[in-house]
Design a protein around this nucleic acid. Structure first.
Lengths: 247, 247
DNA sequence: CGTAGTGTTGAGTCAAGTCAATGGTTGTGG
DNA sequence: CCACAACCATTGACTTGACTCAACACTACG
């Protein structure tokens, strides 16, 4: 019997993971004008080299940031969860330096870039929340450089499985003990800098170690702590502990 | 006969690469209180897990961002050039998620975190410039994920050599045709996600191809365009074209 | 029930890693 | 000015983690 939740509700809640917001802050965000669109899996939210004019906010479904080499190899740079803003990364840049595509079907609320820029100029707690969000994403990029650059395949895979578990858990979309992986093994490979074949073997190897269990793409982690160790995963870089409100 | 330049002079010029600043903006930045310190190669500017209290600005010398795996393997995430701010990435975060160390001996101007936060709150062109700087760095992180994740060793090495050339050129510290590489092959290896031995062989291979020439650590690029092709390098992600002033 | 997209497996190869030794440079102190 | 030490660069021989190619199996969906 409850009314449909506001599409930006989750967006606000994502902010509140890291920054306290007052009731009026919340209202101001929910008052942002937006256009809601349903996008199919694979469709572009942002295209490299385009001038960003809107900031998409993922309302439901998953998306990924992606770049291609000249040879055509794809690297997935980050996975975006429902509630996350897609184009904060380009908020002050003239040209997109990477693309964002839908990983699954989902809804995106497009907010005018100027409106978000105005919020940041507005000097309120909201701009602080936006900037924190941007910086946390940058931190995740850094961890991915480390993951892709220095960890062996098994650990690399375990690491992103842990990251997704913790991030999904933080927004209430999954629990530590398991979730529905929103991507194919090929996409996973592009996120890990590996080939699909090797990802398949690495998954099987984690499975043989009883570190994960599977039903289709649904994953279970019967021994979370051991998985975390294998993945060399420490959630510090996700900056999930809220700032003291004095900050 | 000219007076010593203001230590933050280069910092301002770095901003102006991407954002126009008025004379008064410039004055406001140069008026920031700071403490200047000379740091030896290898010394820490920021330590992972610390609460950042200052924002270091690199006045001279080079620094690098770095993270370690649990196994102790190091990945260098980015190189910082003179004029760049070190802790913008942590400006709104409670805890550092990576470390920054000096690559060479150099001077760092430490500015109080609160003072910089105040600038951002101040809603002026300056805060815009700071945010652009942060976002450009995030863009460089993304390119590094691609570089480390998807390019073969030769291309990977050529790519960072190109990046350094263009960035050094942009602040007037080098030209496309060559510069003094501020790091050892071991450090280069940690930036590329390779081993020092393989980096050495890859350097020799670029040299054999006449794509680079060397005298100690001084590098020359006799065929810049070909190097750029081999490195699959497109400067878009550096966002060096200034924004139209209306933005 | 056919077709397209995924996932799985085997066999062989190769780019990059490991281990280990040798050479060069730079700086320092005697 | 020399000699040693510390660090860095280079090279060779061998190993291996990840890739390639190719086939086959499963699943979902029209």
């Amino acid at each position: 019997m409850s009314a449909d939740p506001h599409p930006l509700e989750l967006f606000v809640r994502t902010f509140e993971l890291r920054t306290p917001l007052s009731g009026s802050d919340r209202q101001q965000i929910l008052a942002l004008p937006y256009t809601l669109r349903t996008l199919e899996s694979g469709s572009y939210v942002v295209r490299e080299a385009d001038a960003p004019r809107y900031c998409g906010v993922l309302v439901s479904g998953f998306a990924y940031r992606q770049k291609l080499t000249g040879e055509g190899a794809r690297q997935i740079i980050a996975i975006n969860l429902p509630g996350e803003a897609i184009d904060l990364q380009h908020l002050f840049l003239r040209e997109a330096d990477h693309s964002v595509q839908m990983l699954t079907r989902g809804e995106v609320a497009f907010v005018a870039r100027e409106d978000l820029q105005a919020l940041v100029r507005g000097s309120s707690a909201i701009s602080h929340a936006l900037l924190v969000q941007m910086q946390v994403e940058a931190s995740i990029f850094r961890e991915w450089v480390l993951n892709v650059g220095r960890r062996p395949a098994k650990s690399r895979l375990a690491h992103v499985l842990c990251e997704l578990a913790v991030r999904l858990d933080a927004v209430g979309l999954a629990a530590h003990y398991g979730y529905q992986l929103p991507m194919t093994q090929e996409e996973l490979a592009d996120a890990l800098g590996l080939t699909p074949v090797h990802v398949n073997r690495t998954i099987k190897s984690l499975e043989a170690d009883k570190l994960i269990a599977r039903d289709r793409r649904r994953l279970f982690f019967p021994e979370w702590k051991r998985l975390r160790d294998v993945g060399d995963f420490n959630a510090r870089y996700l900056h999930l502990n809220p700032l003291p409100s004095s900050e």
